[in-house]
Simulated scan of single mutants.
Amino acid sequence: MTTATAAITMIPISMSSREIAELTGKDHRNVTRDIEKMLTDIGEGVLKFEQTYTNSQNGQSYREFLLPKDLTITLVAGYRSDLRLKIVRRWIELEAVPPQPSLSDRQRKAISILRVAEDEAAAFIRKRVNDAVLVMQGHEDLVAVPTPSGKVTPKQMREAVGLFRSLQYVNKLSGMDKNNALLSANRQVKETTGIDLLKNSGATHLLANETDHALTPTAIGKRLGDYGAQRINGALAHLGYQEKKSVGKTDAWVPTAKGEPHSVMEDTGKKHGNGTPIRQLKWKASIVPILEKEMKQDLETV
Rank of each mutant, 00 (worst) to 15 (best):
H238S: 11
G194W: 00
A285C: 04
L23C: 07
G78L: 09
L103M: 03
L206F: 09
L215Q: 03
K109H: 05
E50A: 02
R90F: 05
L85M: 15
S102R: 01
I92T: 15
Q51H: 06
L291P: 02
Q100W: 06
T5V: 01
S81H: 14
A185G: 08
I195W: 00
R115H: 09
H213W: 04
R158M: 13
N179D: 15
K86R: 14
R126F: 10
G275E: 10
L207S: 06
L134V: 08
G45W: 05
Y241N: 04
A144N: 06
G59C: 11
A7Y: 00
D226T: 11
E159L: 05
L183R: 12
A208N: 15
E22W: 12
E120P: 09
V76M: 10
Y53L: 11
D34Q: 12
K151L: 03
H139C: 14
T52K: 07
H213V: 13
L134I: 11
L85V: 15
E95Q: 15
T32C: 10
K190L: 00
P101C: 02
E36A: 11
L94A: 10
K222R: 10
I35Q: 02
K271T: 08
A132F: 13
S102C: 03
K282H: 02
E260T: 12
M176Q: 09
K244Q: 14
A160H: 01
V161H: 03
R165C: 03
L142W: 14
I13G: 07
T5H: 00
K270G: 03
V135M: 08
R84T: 13
R126H: 11
L281S: 03
G259C: 06
T216H: 04
K69T: 00
S56G: 01
V46I: 14
L291N: 02
T9G: 08
A77F: 12
E93F: 14
Y241L: 13
R84L: 10
M176Y: 08
T2M: 00
K249S: 08
K69Q: 05
E243M: 04
G138P: 14
P255C: 09
I92K: 15
T9P: 01
N130I: 11
T192V: 08
W253M: 02
V97T: 15
L75S: 07
I92M: 14
A219E: 08
A117K: 11
D82M: 07
K284A: 01
K127R: 13
L94P: 06
Q188D: 09
W283A: 02
R89P: 12
Q107M: 03
Q242G: 09
L167V: 14
T54G: 08
I220C: 00
Q107S: 03
L173E: 13
P154I: 10
H262C: 07
T250N: 05
G59M: 13
L207P: 05
L85K: 15
S104V: 01
K109T: 02
K26G: 09
A285W: 00
D41L: 10
R89Y: 12
V288N: 00
A203N: 07
S174P: 01
T250C: 00
V170A: 10
I73V: 11
Q280H: 11
A214L: 06
K282G: 02
A237N: 11
I42Y: 08
M10C: 05
E50G: 01
D251R: 10
